Simulated assay, not measured.
Amino acid sequence: MGHSAAVWDYKAATEITKDWNGIDKVVLRNPGGASARVSLHGGQVTSWRNEQGEELLFTSSKAIFKPPKAVRGGIPICFPQFGYCGSLEQHGFARNKIWTIDENPPPLSPSDSHGKSFIDLLLKPSEEDLKCWPHSEVRIEGLETLDYLDNICQKERFTEQGDAITFEAEVDRVYLSTPNVVAVLDHERKRTYVIRKEGLPDVVVWNPWEKKSKSLVDFGDDEYKQMLCVDGAAIEKPVTLKPGEEWTGRQELSVVPSTFCSEHLDLQSNGF
């Protein structure tokens, strides 16, 4: 008669201690002796050692384990932006906040309960965080799935992933090979600006957001909340004319109730 394997108690292999500066950290271990350390400062993994005790992650010997300075090294959580591609501090605010341990985590699946250790952390944004990361009441439809050049990220080329474009940070983009009809939906005022264009294959989308607004001498600090630049353009392929050739660029703006727009406007239409 064989012996049944002992049930692995992952909670018993989870230890909560404090860093030298008094911030909680969680030490996770597995049956083989491998371990990981997760700091509640930023929810950041600061150490991962194999069964031989060798450190597998780099964390600087001069790392500052104290808010508001993020820990240099390990595995940081960059949210809601990476680098300076947004209006917030570098890599966003999540890596500089104190996270909490989820007292009621979702249940583990049976396949995950054998020889593994877990900790579930939560980040509860403060009211100040939410002010820095507001949700917009304006969205653009007609540019989904298209490629764009991001002027904030050295004109790097990306593909739009959203069902529509919304605004939660600085945006400075050139959308390429766009349809001739684009809509800007203003949910608060229940109206839609319809942009019909001809001879202008690209679309510029710009909003300076909070940080950039304050650096513009001819722009009010809070005016980013009241405006959005959406413009037909010819940027990727400049227009060149030989002697005698003509070029026509045309853009028409109209405003319709949002309910009418959603029911009757065909955004894929290429005509006027």
Results as ranks from 00 to 15, higher is better:
V138M: 03
H135C: 09
D129N: 13
F158I: 09
R139S: 10
E137Y: 04
I152P: 01
Q154K: 12
S117V: 02
L122T: 10
H135S: 13
A164G: 11
L123H: 04
H114M: 13
K116H: 14
C132T: 15
E127P: 10
F118V: 00
F167P: 04
R157C: 07
K124Q: 09
D150T: 02
T159R: 12
L108W: 12
E137D: 11
T166M: 10
L121I: 05
S117E: 04
R157H: 03
P105Q: 11
V138C: 05
D120F: 12
L108C: 13
P134V: 02
E141L: 15
D102F: 07
T145Y: 10
L123C: 03
L149N: 03
L122G: 08
L108A: 09
W133D: 02
T166K: 13
L146H: 10
I152R: 11
D150L: 08
D163S: 11
H135Y: 11
C153Y: 13
I119G: 00
T100P: 02
G142Q: 05
K155Q: 06
W99H: 09
E127Q: 07
A169R: 15
S109K: 15
F167G: 06
L146C: 04
L130H: 04
E128P: 10
P110D: 12
P107N: 12
V138A: 06
L143Y: 06
S126N: 03
E103S: 11
K124C: 09
W133H: 13
S117I: 01
T100N: 09
E137T: 14
E160F: 07
Y148E: 00
S126G: 06
T159N: 06
D129K: 08
Q161I: 05
K131T: 15
D163R: 08
D102G: 11
E137L: 10
E137R: 14
N104K: 13
P106F: 15
H114F: 13
I140E: 01
N104W: 04
L143A: 01
L122C: 07
P134E: 07
I140A: 00
I101R: 12
L149V: 05
L121C: 08
S109F: 15
R139I: 08
R157M: 04
H114K: 15
C132S: 14
E168Q: 05
D150Q: 06
S113F: 03
G162Y: 02
D112V: 04
E127I: 09
A164E: 15
D102R: 00
E141I: 11
P110R: 04
G115N: 12
I152H: 11
I140G: 01
L146M: 04
E156C: 02
A169H: 14
G142W: 03
E128C: 00
D129W: 11
I140W: 02
E141W: 09
I165A: 04
I101N: 12
D112A: 15
L143G: 01
L108G: 11
S109G: 12
I165M: 14
L130G: 10
Q154D: 11
D163F: 09
D102T: 01
